[in-house]
Simulated scan of single mutants.
Amino acid sequence: MQLEQATQESGWSGTIPSAIDVRLLGLVVITAGLAASVNVPYGGLPVAVAAFVVLVGGGVVVHVLGERKLRRITDGLVERWIAAGGEIDDVTRSADGMRTEWTVHTSGGEITVGGIALVPIAKLSVEWQGVGDTMDASEAEANLDALADSLYEECFEIGSAPQRS
């Protein structure tokens, strides 16, 4: 119940929008086309078409699973930041279909969370005030509490301290 109140006070609706990367899907289609074309001399056009369909299908599934993993991590980070007292105004997609990336709007500035959304090699990237860090998404998901704590300290506690000139 307390988490619900914190969510309502923060202004965030509680939903991380989907962020499918069209550029990555285009790369999947091109790579599948090149790989399938190798089959034309050996198995003919039907084998090449079947290989293309299988490769594109697999690539799309791998991307969607990677996007879901990054979205889960982003959701976990935002929930932990709100529970720790961070003021989250909203979470939006950073680019319309061109990146797997979200912008977390806070009172202290914007935090960009995203990465490479391909499940076996998924990478998480977090950027705040021009400084970014990248890590393996599986590692980030396994250590989400520690990651959220360190990012909270950096983005909310240190970032909200008055700057001295």
Rank of each mutant, 00 (worst) to 15 (best):
L151E: 06
R23D: 03
A122P: 00
A32H: 05
A32E: 08
A32K: 05
Q8H: 08
V60E: 06
I158E: 09
V60W: 10
F52V: 01
G86W: 02
L124W: 05
L144F: 08
P46M: 13
H105K: 13
A36T: 04
P162S: 15
S107Q: 12
E79W: 08
D149A: 15
W81F: 14
N143M: 07
D21Q: 09
E87N: 11
D136C: 04
G132T: 08
L65Y: 11
R68H: 06
V91Q: 06
S107N: 03
T134I: 09
H105V: 13
S165E: 05
S10R: 06
G33P: 03
I88K: 06
I73K: 10
D21N: 14
G85T: 05
S160G: 11
A117S: 09
E139A: 15
Q2V: 09
T15W: 04
L77H: 05
G59H: 00
D96I: 14
A122Q: 01
V28T: 04
G66I: 04
S10M: 08
E154M: 07
M1E: 13
G58Y: 09
E67K: 05
V104G: 03
F156T: 04
G85D: 04
N143H: 15
R164F: 08
G159E: 14
I111R: 09
G14R: 12
E141G: 09
W128G: 02
G114V: 07
Q129V: 02
Q8A: 13
R164W: 14
A161G: 00
V91C: 08
M98Q: 08
E127D: 13
R80C: 07
W81Y: 02
L55Y: 01
G26W: 11
A19P: 01
Y42S: 14
Q8R: 13
R80Y: 04
E101V: 03
C155E: 02
T31V: 11
S125A: 14
A161V: 02
G115K: 02
V22M: 12
E110Y: 09
D96P: 04
D136L: 10
A36E: 03
A117M: 04
R23P: 10
A161Q: 07
G44Y: 01
D75N: 13
P17C: 14
S107H: 11
P46R: 09
L25E: 12
F52S: 01
A19R: 13
E153I: 03
L124S: 06
M98D: 13
L34G: 13
I116N: 07
T112S: 15
V53W: 04
Q2R: 15
N39Q: 08
A32C: 07
P162V: 12
A36L: 10
V28D: 01
A148E: 11
R164L: 15
A83G: 04
L144Q: 03
W128Y: 15
P17V: 09
V28K: 00
A84D: 05
L144S: 05
D96Q: 10
M98T: 12
